[in-house]
Write a protein that binds this DNA or RNA. Structure first.
Lengths: 250, 250
DNA sequence: GAGTGGTCTAGACCACGAA
DNA sequence: TCGTGGTCTAGACCACTCG
């Protein structure tokens, strides 16, 4: 099984397991690349590819001339998949994601929508307004705009569907890249009613445009989270960066 | 000059310039790797290393079997350096960063501080409270805890210094990795007074732990931004991720 | 000075996409 | 089917760290 996985992934997986199992100890030095290559019976290039992944995940450091150092395990990585889909992320956190589609329908693209979806103003698009819940409690209002070809699929979906992302992927809509902007915005009247907060309360806002491998926009979304429900986590390094989303644990 | 830069960086730079100059056009297909290798007179491996960087920056896609596609230029990348230091980021945005040190002094690590700095509770640490400004207006309150060896350097610095990061680096304190958590928190009385807002207003909070190449924590900070002043931007892809911080432009 | 990671090359085979 | 990106190898040299 898993015979399809590339070699470097297997090496990375083994190393990750060994590190999180504490076989090297936090702060310890990793074996040299040459030695790892011998140990795993692969070339040094493959080992380096595996280590690059661990570097991105913040598990090890790297510095020319010095051995790699194991960074404290602590926070685990959250993948692009988990970041992209509220439902997948929630499940990975052991929460039960839910949702209710408040409104869905076609319309003409506003200037903002047209800009983000790279369409002419007035082009036919689909808008979806949803309330997302964790264990039954509303935590987020999601306003998404889809280009026509994607929106037509979404419009036919079950209003109670937990994950649009899964369904879209099953229809061949691929998500490849996303650009997120995170800030604070006061709740408007609609937000207040849907989330059960007061108008004017500061909400955590995430705006997101996702594109497919060909660079075509597939979604433009504006999500507003109730304070204290989620936090976004970002890991970055000189040379590599990573991000995820986490439940608020404080 | 810059003869010291690795080859793949030069290739990446050339490609980046060509792309942002529109030489390929948004949505266009990039030349094949083999062709780029011939064009630049380097091996395919080097071209791939350059393209990996562009992929991380969200400038091009990649899919096995298909040519790479140029993604819309739009938002430019913000580097780890800009993300790490408020002052450097501000300057990169054409803003004039300022700051005022409200309080600084040694103390014993609280449980939270000890956890994040990986020290025993009660260990000697330094706390710094600063107000950061853009063009003279306060936009952020920064509460930072440093381990002793770093804090002693910070404590001797000019209270009006714009960039602690630059000064620390000059003293050999290296920042290599950082983990950020972003959420919303109501302003307390101190925040309200320092930022000139009302207590209870929602502030954008960024908590951050930075470590050096050896994995030793060098800083634990909690920053609170006035709403509407900054937004964090994150770019991620299946296979690579990036993040930055941006001025609020809405 | 020895060890180690960073860079680069040349070539190979495979999996997938598109014509 | 053919071109393309993804993976892997073997070996080389350099820049840097550390004892």
């Amino acid at each position: 099984m898993a015979g399809k996985a590339p070699l470097y992934r297997k090496v990375a997986g083994d190393l990750r397991a060994a590190i999180t199992a504490g076989e090297y100890g936090s702060g310890a030095r990793l074996p040299a690349e040459d030695e790892l290559a011998r140990t795993y019976g692969v070339s040094r290039g493959t080992v380096r590819q595996a280590l690059a992944a661990l570097r991105t995940d913040g598990l090890v450091t790297s510095r020319r001339g010095a051995r790699r150092v194991v960074l404290g395990g602590g926070a685990r990585l959250q993948s692009f998949e988990e970041l992209r889909s509220f439902a997948r992320w929630a499940r990975s956190q052991g929460e039960e994601p839910g949702g209710r589609t408040v409104a869905v329908g076609p319309g003409g693209a506003t200037e903002e929508e047209a800009y983000h979806l790279r369409l002419p103003v007035g082009e036919r698009i689909f808008r979806v307004l949803r309330v997302r819940t964790l264990s039954g409690s509303p935590v987020m209002v999601e306003r998404t705009t889809y280009p026509e070809r994607v929106g037509e699929l979404v419009a036919t979906m079950d209003p109670g569907l937990a994950s649009h992302a899964d369904a879209l992927e099953a229809h061949g809509v691929l998500f490849s890249d996303a650009l997120h902007t995170i800030d604070v915005v006061p709740a408007d009247a609609a937000d207040a009613e849907l989330l059960g907060c007061r108008a004017g309360d500061g909400l955590l806002r995430e705006r997101r445009r996702s594109t497919d491998p060909a660079g075509l926009p597939v979604e433009w979304s504006q999500d507003r989270y109730l304070p204290g429900t989620v936090a976004f986590t970002v890991r970055n390094s000189s040379g590599s960066r990573a991000m995820g989303r986490s439940l608020n644990g404080s």
